[in-house]
Every structure is written in structure tokens, then in C-alpha cells.
Simulated assay, not measured.
Amino acid sequence: MSTSTSTTRVALVTGGSGGIGRAVVERLAADGFAVAVHYAGNHATAEALVAEIEAAGGQAIAVGGDVADEEAMAAVLDATEAAFGGIDVVVNTAGIMVIGPVATFDLADLDRMHRTNVRGAFVVAQQAARRVRPGGAIIGFSTSQTRLQHPGYAPYAASKAAVEAITLVLARELRGKDITVNAVAPGPTATPLFLDGKDEQTISTLAGLAPLERLGTPDDVAETVAFLAGPARWVNGQIIYLNGGIA
């Protein structure tokens, strides 16, 4: 790990060791950010990503903790500040998805999902609101399912609707701080987790929903996150739907 210079911007990415989070980490590192790669359970994967970034000349550390645990997340931000001197951008990609119909949904799964997706989003936003430096950005993750209303997604979409509410209100609460607060809401995105268990027909059907006739990629999402993290200083208090025009 290298010590950050005063001109280097610093980002913390929760859930940064895999999937969309990994693509966000790689993009921000390529854009010159020093990046704290947060993981919940897979320390080795996070450390491997840090090693890749450092081998390419970038700066990174791995930081672990439960996003719903305020003490753990305070420690994560402490470690990021200690390593790099401050925090400019917090991207909260961490989340879990359990799907099923309302009538038969297991309430234990609901509680588990909402602990990570709602309480976790609130904890990360709270810590970010206290720590991010002027000129910085806070970026949450929702889902296009809040608009698509596909059967089976009510519990998950409800948890992400909470993220949208937190985002829109926090943007107004940070008036005068020169910190933007936005969320991205991806549609079907070709991550290993998304593709797992789906047959070719299902994947083809989902890809055909968008007028662009393909699934999104993690890099598609990372591109928009990088825009919000960097040049997009006049985009604030917005939910940006990344789905190729599905909704």
C-alpha cells in the first residue's frame, strides 16, 4: 500500500470484492482513485483485487465488516482515512437478493435481507454523511425492479425503495456541504450471481426486454458510478435507472 498524496481522491466501495462492486473498484482505480475495497466475508478475494490494483500502479486496501453494524462500518471508514488521509466518495454496492411471492415469503429471509439492504444502506449513508469531504459524492444502489414490478420481487424491491428514500432525503439534508448524493438502479446485469441457475431461454428473454437487446454488464454500471463519483457535480438527489431502456 502506498501513501496517498494530497491530490489523490479516495473512494470506499462496499461489496467491492466481486460482481458489480468489483467492476466499480476497478474503474475508480483506473480513474486514479485510491480505493478501499470492502468485503463482508471473502477476505482473500478482496486482498487479491488489492494486489492487482497495486501491481498496476494504483493504491488500495482491503477493509472488512458487516454493513449493518455501525461500529464495524465506523472502523472501516477509520481505516480508510488512516490509510489515505480522508474520504471523497462512498459507493454502497453491498446487498443481498431473495425473491419469492408475498403470500408465501419466509419472514426470516425478509428480516435478513432488510437488515443488509435497508439498515446497511442507512448505516453506510450515515457514516458517509459524517465523513465525506467537500466536493465528494455518496452513491447508493437501488434496482430497476422498483419500476418493473415483476412478480416475486416485492421483498427485494421494497428494500431498495428504502435506499431511494434515504438517497433523496440525504441529498437535501447535506445542503451547503458540497456533497452529491445519488443512487443507481440497475436492471438485469450479467454477473455470475445473476446468471447462476438461469437457463439460456430465461437469459435470452431477459436480454430481450431492453430496446438495446442485451443484458447490462458490470462495466456499464461502473461507468455511471464513475461519472457520479467524478465529473457529475450537478447531478444530485437523483435515482439513475441503468437498464438499457426497459423502464
Rank of each mutant, 00 (worst) to 15 (best):
Y39L: 03
H38D: 01
F33G: 01
G64I: 01
E54Q: 15
A44P: 04
G65I: 02
F33C: 03
G64M: 05
D66N: 14
I61A: 07
A72K: 05
D69F: 02
A48W: 10
I61V: 15
G65T: 03
I53R: 13
E54I: 12
A46I: 03
A48M: 12
E54N: 11
A34L: 07
D66I: 04
H38I: 03
A46N: 06
D66Y: 06
A44Q: 14
A60C: 10
A55Y: 09
G57D: 10
H38W: 02
F33N: 04
D69K: 03
Y39F: 15
Y39C: 00
E52N: 13
E52H: 12
I53M: 11
A40Q: 13
Y39E: 00
L49K: 09
A44S: 14
A40P: 02
D66W: 06
E54H: 12
V37G: 06
A68N: 02
Y39P: 00
A34N: 02
G57Y: 07
V35C: 02
V50M: 11
F33S: 01
E70N: 04
A72F: 00
E47D: 15
V37D: 05
H43F: 08
H38E: 01
H43N: 09
A55T: 14
L49Q: 10
V37F: 04
A56G: 14
V37S: 08
D66K: 10
A55I: 10
F33H: 06
E70T: 02
I61W: 06
G58T: 09
